[in-house]
């Protein structure tokens, strides 16, 4: 029983983290069709900001958390301003490759300016403890991950449904030109979407740093690959799909960890992807996706 509960919490926590990152990708994709491969480097910028701040003498974990989120949001907005704005109206492949290029640049900058080797960051280690509920021992990090992700998603839903800017983001996901006809500034809508996307990545970064206790240049890359896969199984561009896809991915991974014998543990990632690709054979448009009508985005 204890074991089963522990694995359930594992799956939920993994799933929550994938959902956060996948949501960030989906927010940006839904309004401007950008497949943001540089999302992992937003997590990277966030993590390295915390590393640098700690190296410069920062000791407060709370400030470190705020810094992580703010740095990620800023990095996302900056990436958009510098690299993605010139290709805003270009075909999807152009944007995708641009983002891929940005990802390579930033990853290598970490290598060049800091170090190719992982750097230790202990400022957030306090978040990772064991909590005891009667007979159960659970990881505080996983519980927090679950709660914080839940609250973040709730806040996102409220923002998208209540605020004018949130409405504009939802509207822009279908028809950007008409949103501009409402007098809403395109740049503001896009900057907001990127800031949200970055903030979500920053929250994920906090948990990653706390769990690993170190940062490395490719910190966010493999996580974002998984988040992309979550988006694809959820239905690309659908926010609910991204969140659901992330959770599903968490459960598949933990399920495989439980089911696979120790010596085959290395095949976990490969099998996860195989399962997902197999799912796509049956639902090419994803679980919650719908066939996008071509011409939907035309002026």
């Amino acid at each position: 029983m204890d074991y089963a509960l522990q694995q359930l919490l594992n799956a939920l926590a993994f799933g929550a983290e994938y959902s956060l990152v996948a949501l960030g990708l989906a927010v940006v994709f839904s309004i401007m069709g950008l497949v943001n491969f540089a999302h992992g480097e937003i997590i990277g910028v966030s993590a390295y900001s915390v590393f640098l701040a700690a190296a410069l003498g920062l000791t407060s974990p709370i400030v470190a958390v705020l810094l992580a989120v703010a740095a990620a949001a800023l990095a996302a907005v900056a990436f958009e301003r510098v690299a993605f704005r010139p290709v805003r109206y270009a075909p999807t492949t152009t944007g995708l490759l641009t983002a891929f290029g940005v990802s390579i640049v930033v990853q290598n900058l970490f290598m060049l300016l800091i170090s190719p080797k992982p750097q230790s960051v202990s400022i957030l280690n306090g978040l990772n403890q064991m909590w005891f509920f009667g007979p159960f021992a659970v990881s505080s990090l996983q519980v927090m991950e679950l709660i914080v992700s839940g609250l973040t998603i709730l806040a996102l839903v409220l923002f998208l449904n209540r605020s004018t800017l949130g409405l504009a983001i939802r509207a822009a996901s279908r028809d950007f030109a008409t949103v501009r006809l409402m007098g809403i500034k395109a740049n503001r809508v896009i900057a907001t979407a990127f800031a949200i996307s970055g903030a979500l990545a920053g929250i994920a970064a906090v948990f990653i740093i706390a769990r690993r206790g170190s940062v490395s240049p490719d910190l966010g890359f493999s996580l974002v690959l998984k988040a992309f896969v979550a988006c694809v199984i959820g239905g690309f561009g659908s926010l609910a799909g991204a969140a659901a896809g992330g959770m599903l991915l968490g459960f598949i991974e933990v399920g495989l960890l439980v089911a696979l014998p120790q010596e085959y543990g290395g095949f976990k990632d490969a099998l996860t992807y195989v399962i997902i690709v197999a799912l796509l054979v049956y639902r090419p448009e994803g679980l919650l996706g719908q066939r996008v009508e071509l011409g939907d985005k035309e002026i």
Binding site: T164, L167, A168, R170, A171, S173, R174, D175, A177, T178, V179, L181, M182, G183, I184
Partner: peptide
């Protein structure tokens, strides 16, 4: 027409007054 199909009628009107 280009109404925002995924938004409610009320949300469409509110967005019209965004400025």
């Amino acid at each position: 027409r280009h109404i925002f199909a995924n938004l409610t009628v009320g949300e469409n009107l509110r967005l019209g007054a965004a400025i």
